[in-house]
Amino acid sequence: MNTNELLDLMSAGPRDVDRRDALLKAGKAGLQIVLAALPLGLAAGCAGIGKLVANDPKRAADVLNFALLLERRESEFYKIGLETPGLVPASDRAVIEQIGRNETRHVVFLTTGITGIGGVPDTSTQFDHTGAGKVPDVFRNYRSFLKLAQTNEETGVRAYKGQAPFLMDSPTLLTAALRIHSSEGRHVALLRHLRGLKGWISESQDTGYSPITYQGESNVTHGGVNLSSVSKISHRALTEAFDEPLTRAQVMAVVSPFIRKAA
């Protein structure tokens, strides 16, 4: 199975169960090859997978499925945005396309990874990108689209940061999560720039759709060091210099309005 087939597989929606199964069956041998080729050897049985997966594969898969939920939402969000005629202006298209591409790859990677450690990728969740009317014009108004894109990416950065310690027993999964985490940091900096904002978060200014997404960002105490008392740098810059984690519960509070309730 090559990357294109994997992308095809992952773009199969929850209603395309037959298609997904057929693709999975066809690609079963290929999946092992993909796993073997993954950076840092993300494949079941590799030493780097570590204690976490060996002792508690369910927990590892659970953390990755939480990440998959966020990535599936982002991937679909950009896909719809880019396919909506007249929404993304030509000037910004290269940026949005690159971000969308990376999010789709995260979906592929996590799905492959979850399967690789013996878990079941949860692709059942469907999304309402208007947030049940919170952002009604998200695919009609580019400014709304960018603002929600930024909110999603900031939330993603904070979510991965919050989950990283839970992956410490698995160096391979931790490193992969960290590498996704920083890619989301790159994404959000550019989205902020496209909106005329600085690439970094000053104090805890809510520049998105959800105050929780920026809650606590004005913190200047890290590991017991209160930077205000040891640094001459302005408070504003001190808050910009460090991003803060969010708990899974906080992330779900941000994301839940965007999850379509089962019919």
Partner: peptide, 26 residues
Amino acid sequence: GQLLRDPQHLTIAGKIVSVEARHAAI
């Protein structure tokens, strides 16, 4: 990240690296 043993240190490294990623992108 995988060389660290203290979760608090990992979190702080995470707080910094995403800002470095923002810098890199800009």
